[in-house]
Design a protein around this nucleic acid. Structure first.
Length: 274
DNA sequence: CGGATTTGACCCGC
DNA sequence: GCGGGTCAAATCCG
């Protein structure tokens, strides 16, 4: 994955630019550098006697975590709500903390952190992000807008999915892409997340392992299809799914996919529809 | 107006 | 004590 990858990422970047106007995430970025947010004081220091010590603190250990590296971190099929951002020691970019938007309604424990990799120069292409998922989704997708549909190509993007910033020229808060905001639905709410050359690893079963080749092979790039299929068509997922789209089985969630990858199992849900 | 984001402070494991 | 993870008020934005 050297030259081809760069080409793919170039294409990705171009697609991002094409679709970015529809992305609220980009707006967020723009607003970020456009005007500085006013400092807001936290009242914590004043009334911390009853606001912080009410036993609501987390337990730091998460049972199962899985991580992967992707240039499209906002792919997931779920909606995420950002609840924190932190500059990590030794990391060039801040780490963002997300939890499932249904954590409140349905008590979904799923969380994830997204951190842009310090991969320096990648030719202005999409930067890579390390996404660490913690906990599994217990929320149902029935009432949500997410009906994960995996495209086979890394270059294919869902409406709004890639509208995230991924701007290599941002140096500080460019990981403020919004996963939640990017999950714009089209009609039936069918979503078509795209995975771009992901590198998976899992610590859920002890010991990390990387499935770089696996992921790369799974989501092989089909430039020809990606470029021949018009973006308009791709945006219209209310209709029948086109052949290059892999439709997951019932009850599929990204977690299943994560688990399968983590267990080095064949991803049977992704039957080749080509 | 309600949901999402920002961000400083706080908590807690190591 | 340090640093990562979380909280929650303030703010933004559609």
């Amino acid at each position: 994955m050297t030259l081809d990858l760069q080409g793919d990422e170039l294409l990705l970047a171009q697609l991002r630019e094409l679709l970015s106007p529809s992305s609220p995430a980009v707006k967020a970025v723009e607003s970020c550098d456009g005007r500085r947010r006013r400092r807001r004081g936290s009242k914590r220091a004043q009334d911390d006697d009853n606001t912080t010590n009410n036993g609501k603190r987390r337990s730091k250990k998460q049972k199962s975590t899985s991580s992967f590296v992707t240039s499209v971190p906002d792919f997931d099929g779920y909606r995420w709500r950002k609840y924190g951002q932190k500059q990590i020691e030794g990391a060039m970019y801040a780490r963002s903390y997300y939890r499932c938007t249904r954590s409140a309604e349905q008590g979904c424990p799923a969380k994830r952190t997204v951190q842009r990799n310090d991969d320096g120069d990648n030719g202005g292409a999409a930067p890579k992000y390390t996404v660490v998922c913690m906990g599994e989704h217990t929320c149902t997708a029935t009432d949500s807008l997410e009906a994960p549909v995996i495209l086979e190509t890394t270059a294919v993007v869902a409406p709004g999915i890639i509208g995230t910033n991924n701007r290599p020229d941002e140096d500080d808060n460019d990981d403020t892409f919004t996963s939640a905001g990017s999950t714009t639905t089209t009609g039936t709410g069918v979503e078509s997340p795209a995975i771009s050359d992901i590198t998976w690893s899992s610590s859920s079963c002890g010991g990390d392992y990387v499935v770089d080749d696996y992921g790369a092979g799974l989501f092989d790039v089909h430039d020809s299809w990606a470029s021949s299929a018009s973006l308009q068509e791709m945006e219209d997922f209310t209709g029948p799914i086109r052949s290059p789209v892999h439709v997951p089985a019932d009850g599929w969630t990204i977690d299943h996919f994560l688990l399968q990858l983590a267990n080095n199992e064949p991803v049977s849900h992704f039957s080749s529809a080509c």
